[in-house]
Design a protein around this nucleic acid. Structure first.
Length: 437
RNA sequence: CGGGGUGUAGCGCAGUCUGGUAGCGCACCUGCUUUGGGAGCAGGGGGUCGGGAGUUCGAAUCUCCCCACCCCGACCA
C-alpha cells in the first residue's frame, strides 16, 4: 500500500514520513535537562541565541498547550484577538514606556525612517484598541486575549525555549469600571490559571510577587514545581489541598519566591512550611489606572461623568511551558509527556518491519487506531527494535503499543505506559478498548 | 552589562603549545550477516578548520581585527 501523508498536522503519522531528527548525544550548549531533551528529541532547533524553529514534534506540543490555554480563556469569558508583532513607537511614547523599556526592546526603522519595534508585550496596543471603541460603562467589563509571539532582547538568553528572546505568550487584558470589578477579573484569572495548569498535568503554585504590600497592587506569579526549577519557593502546605475554586482561602495563605521570602515575617508554622523549586510560567497583575490614565482611557458613567477604567494584565508563557513540562516530567531515558500535551498519544512500534506477518498486524492496528480517532505515531521504519524503543522512550509518548513476531504468533500486542513503564500483553481488541477510554 | 570559555563533518570530540595541507566515535550511504532495548564485519560519501587581514616557501596551528555561540552573575512570561 502506498504511503499517504496525513491530511492535517494533528492527524496520524508514520514515522517513515515524519521529520524526527533525534540525537543520541547531547549538544554541548545544552546544560539543563529540558534543553538537552528538546534538542535530542527533535522538538526544536536553535536558529540564533534565544530564537528557535519549532520542528514537527515540538510544534504539536506547542499547539496542544496553546489549545488548552485557549479553551480555558474562552471558558472564563475572554475573547481572542490577534495583534501584530510589529508596533509603531508612537503608542509607547504616549505611555512613557518607550524610554523606560531600554535595551530589551528590539527597535528598528522602516523604510520611511519611522521608529518601529517588535512587541515585548501589548498593554499600549490593547489599550489603544479599547479606547477607540468602548465609550460607555455599559460596555464593561471586557477581557481580551491573544496568543502571539513576543520578543525581548534578553542580554543572556538560556535554558533553551524556557528563556528565549522570541517566545510565544498568551497575554490578556481586563478592563473594569472600578476596583471591585477589577478584583473579580483578577480572581477569575487566578482560578483560570490554576485550572489551565492542572489540565496540563502540572502542579502550579501561585506566589505573591509583592508580599509586603497590604491592600496594594495585586500581583502573583505561577510556578510549576520541578526539582530543577530556577527559583526556590516557600509556601503553606494548606495550598496543596486547595483547588481552583478556593480563591479566597488560597489568597490568605503564604507563598513566596526565595527573594521575597522573609523568615521573620513568615507566620506559617514550621511543620506547614513547604519548600520547593519552581519555574515561573504565568503572571497575573492588577495595575489599576496606570495605562488608562497615561493614555486617557475614559468611559461615560451612569450620570455622564468620566470614569478612568481599571486594568489588569495576565500572561502565560506558552513556549516556556514546553521546557517547564519537560523539567517536571522526564526520566533518564527521555521525556515523559503528560497525556494532555503529548504530541501523539500512542507510539505504535512494528518491531520487525519487512516481516509480512508483523507488517500486516501493525498496519491493521494503525488503521484501527486512526479510525478510533486516537493520535498515533507509527514507527514503520526499517530499524532494529532497540532503536525503536529508544526513540519512543526519548520522545515520551504516553503509550507504546508494540507489535512483534512473538506476539503476532500468539495474537497479542504489548501495551506499555511510558510513565512507570508497566506493560501487559493484550489482544488487539483489549488494547484498543484500553486506549479508547 | 561585568566575569569566564568555546568555535575543526549533522552531533560529541582530538589535533593548536612545538607550522608541513585534517583525524576519531556516533549519525549517513552500499553490501553481507544479524534482528524484543540505540548490532557486527567490509567498503564509501561528506570539512572554504567561524570570517577577514597579516607573518611564512608553507597556517586549523603564529599575530591582529571582526563575528557567533555557551557558562557564572545581575534582570525577566
Amino acid at each position: 500500500m502506498p504511503k499517504v501523508l496525513a491530511p492535517s498536522a494533528r492527524g496520524p503519522m508514520r514515522l517513515s514520513l515524519f521529520l524526527l531528527p533525534t540525537l543520541k548525544e547531547s549538544p554541548a550548549e545544552a546544560q539543563i535537562v529540558s534543553h538537552r531533551l528538546s534538542l535530542r528529541a527533535g522538538l526544536v532547533r536553535q536558529m540564533s541565541a534565544g530564537i528557535y524553529a519549532w520542528l514537527a514534534l515540538g510544534f504539536r506540543v506547542l499547539k496542544k498547550i496553546e489549545q488548552i490555554v485557549r479553551e480555558e480563556q474562552d471558558r472564563a469569558g475572554c475573547q481572542e484577538v490577534l495583534m501584530p508583532t510589529v508596533q509603531s513607537a508612537e503608542l509607547w511614547q504616549e505611555s512613557g514606556r518607550y524610554d523606560d523599556y531600554g535595551e530589551e526592546m528590539l527597535r528598528f526603522n522602516d523604510r520611511h525612517g519611522r521608529e518601529m519595534l517588535y512587541g515585548p508585550t501589548n498593554e499600549e496596543m490593547i489599550t489603544d484598541i479599547f479606547r477607540q471603541y468602548v465609550k460607555s460603562y455599559r460596555d464593561l467589563p471586557k477581557n481580551l486575549y491573544q496568543i502571539q509571539w513576543k520578543f525581548r532582547d534578553e542580554v543572556r538568553p538560556r535554558f533553551g525555549v524556557m528563556r528565549g528572546r522570541e517566545f510565544l505568550m498568551k497575554d490578556n487584558y481586563s478592563f473594569d469600571l472600578d476596583f471591585e470589578g477589577a478584583k473579580r477579573s483578577y480572581e477569575n484569572m487566578y482560578q483560570t490559571y490554576l485550572r489551565t495548569f492542572a489540565r496540563m498535568g502540572l502542579t502550579a503554585i501561585a506566589v505573591r510577587a509583592d508580599p509586603g504590600a497590604i491592600g496594594g497592587t495585586l500581583s502573583q506569579e505561577f510556578h510549576i514545581l520541578a526539582e530543577t526549577g530556577e527559583s526556590k519557593v516557600f509556601y503553606d502546605a494548606g495550598l496543596d489541598s486547595l483547588g481552583p475554586e478556593d480563591v479566597e482561602a488560597a489568597q490568605q495563605l503564604y507563598a513566596c519566591t526565595e527573594e521575597k521570602h522573609d523568615p521573620a515575617a513568615c507566620t506559617v508554622p514550621p511543620d506547614r512550611l513547604r519548600e520547593a523549586r519552581g519555574i515561573e510560567v504565568g503572571h497575573i497583575f492588577y495595575f489599576g489606572t496606570k495605562y488608562s490614565k497615561a493614555m486617557n482611557v475614559e468611559v461615560a458613567g451612569p450620570n455622564g461623568e468620566s470614569i478612568v477604567v481599571e486594568m489588569g494584565s495576565y500572561g502565560i508563557g506558552i513556549s516556556r511551558l514546553v521546557g517547564a513540562i519537560i523539567e517536571a516530567s522526564h526520566d533518564e531515558k527521555g521525556i515523559v509527556w503528560p497525556e494532555p500535551v503529548a504530541p501523539f498519544r500512542v507510539g505504535l512500534i512494528n518491531l520487525r518491519s519487512g516481516d509480512a506477518a508483523c507488517d500486516k498486524a501493525a498496519d491493521a492496528l494503525y488503521e484501527k487506531l486512526n479510525a478510533a480517532g486516537i493520535e498515533v505515531l507509527y514507527d514503520d521504519r526499517d530499524e532494529r527494535s532497540g532503536v525503536k524503543f529508544a526513540t519512543m522512550d526519548l520522545i515520551g509518548l504516553p503509550w507504546q503499543l508494540v507489535v512483534g513476531p512473538r506476539g503476532v504468533k500468539n495474537g497479542v500486542v504489548e501495551l506499555k505506559r511510558r510513565a512507570g513503564g508497566e506493560s501487559e500483553e493484550l489482544s488487539v481488541e483489549s488494547a484498543l478498548a484500553r486506549l479508547v477510554d
